[in-house]
Simulated scan of single mutants.
Amino acid sequence: MPKIVDIDETPNPNARKFLLREPLSWGIAHSYDNAQQAQGDALASALFAIPHVSNVFYIDSWLTVTQDGQANWDKLAREIAIPVRAAPAASAQSAAAVFAARATVAELSPEDRQRLDDIELILDQQIRPYLQSDGGDLHVLGLTGNQLIVHYQGACGTCPSAISGTLQGIESRLRTLEPDLEVIAA
């Protein structure tokens, strides 16, 4: 059962990042914008049952919960702690469930697959660590021509700066690889 080690504020005032002693997943991101999306995920469903919870994102040993801005964080954090402590640690998950959860990008040509691999390398090394330190992440939804479609997760999903400054910074960094690349947040 995961224990909360610390709770960090994020750049998004409506989100908090919960650092855990044990991992909840093995490198698989779980991101939900509402209770309906969370069906089948016991932890996320329990968190959405708490009033004011509007987004749940977790991977490895941390969890980000976003609220609607109407709750007191001290009280809400105590309520969030209950289902987090009751959740199974990643070691209790089966390998089959982990592999089934891996997201895939639509069929790509070998050239586009290489382009996407190069983009993912930059995202993994230079972008995601910063987003993750703030309780969020970025998932690539697709690559079509010169458009990279991404989806913000966790605290980044509702952060006002994610769509403006952060997106521009990501696009600027990726344009060193592909000068005509356009990054679109979906």
Rank of each mutant, 00 (worst) to 15 (best):
M1Q: 12
M1G: 11
K3P: 00
K3M: 09
V5A: 11
D6E: 15
I7K: 02
I7W: 07
I7C: 05
I7S: 01
D8F: 14
D8C: 10
E9S: 06
T10G: 01
N12C: 12
A15Q: 02
R16M: 04
R16H: 12
L19M: 12
L19S: 14
L19V: 15
L19K: 09
L20N: 11
R21P: 00
S25L: 04
W26Q: 10
G27P: 07
I28E: 05
A29N: 07
Y32N: 09
D33M: 12
N34P: 12
A38M: 12
A38V: 12
Q39F: 03
A42E: 15
A42P: 00
A44W: 00
S45F: 05
A46I: 13
L47I: 13
F48T: 01
F48I: 03
F48H: 11
I50P: 06
P51R: 04
H52D: 08
H52A: 14
H52R: 13
H52L: 11
V53T: 05
V53G: 08
S54W: 11
N55Q: 14
Y58E: 01
Y58G: 02
I59D: 08
I59G: 09
D60Q: 09
D60T: 12
S61Y: 00
L63N: 08
V65W: 14
V65T: 06
A71L: 05
W73V: 07
D74I: 01
D74V: 00
K75I: 13
R78N: 05
A81I: 04
I82F: 00
R85H: 12
R85Y: 09
P88F: 12
P88E: 10
A89I: 04
A89C: 09
S91I: 00
A92W: 01
A92L: 10
A92P: 00
S94Y: 07
S94N: 13
V98S: 06
V98K: 09
A100F: 03
A101N: 07
A106V: 05
E111G: 13
D112R: 02
R113C: 08
R115I: 07
D117I: 13
D117S: 15
D118R: 14
D118Q: 13
I119G: 00
L121E: 06
L123P: 07
L123M: 03
D124N: 12
Q125Y: 07
P129C: 12
Y130S: 11
S133A: 15
G136R: 03
G136H: 01
V140H: 06
L141W: 06
L141M: 13
L141C: 08
L143C: 01
L143E: 05
Q147M: 13
I149R: 15
H151K: 10
Y152W: 15
Q153S: 12
G154N: 13
C156F: 09
C159A: 06
C159W: 03
P160F: 06
P160W: 05
A162C: 01
A162Y: 00
I163M: 14
I163C: 10
I163R: 14
I163K: 10
L167Q: 07
L167C: 07
L167P: 06
G169E: 01
E171I: 11
S172T: 15
S172K: 13
R175K: 10
R175Q: 15
R175A: 00
T176Q: 15
L181K: 05
L181G: 04
E182P: 00
I184R: 03
A185S: 13
A186S: 15
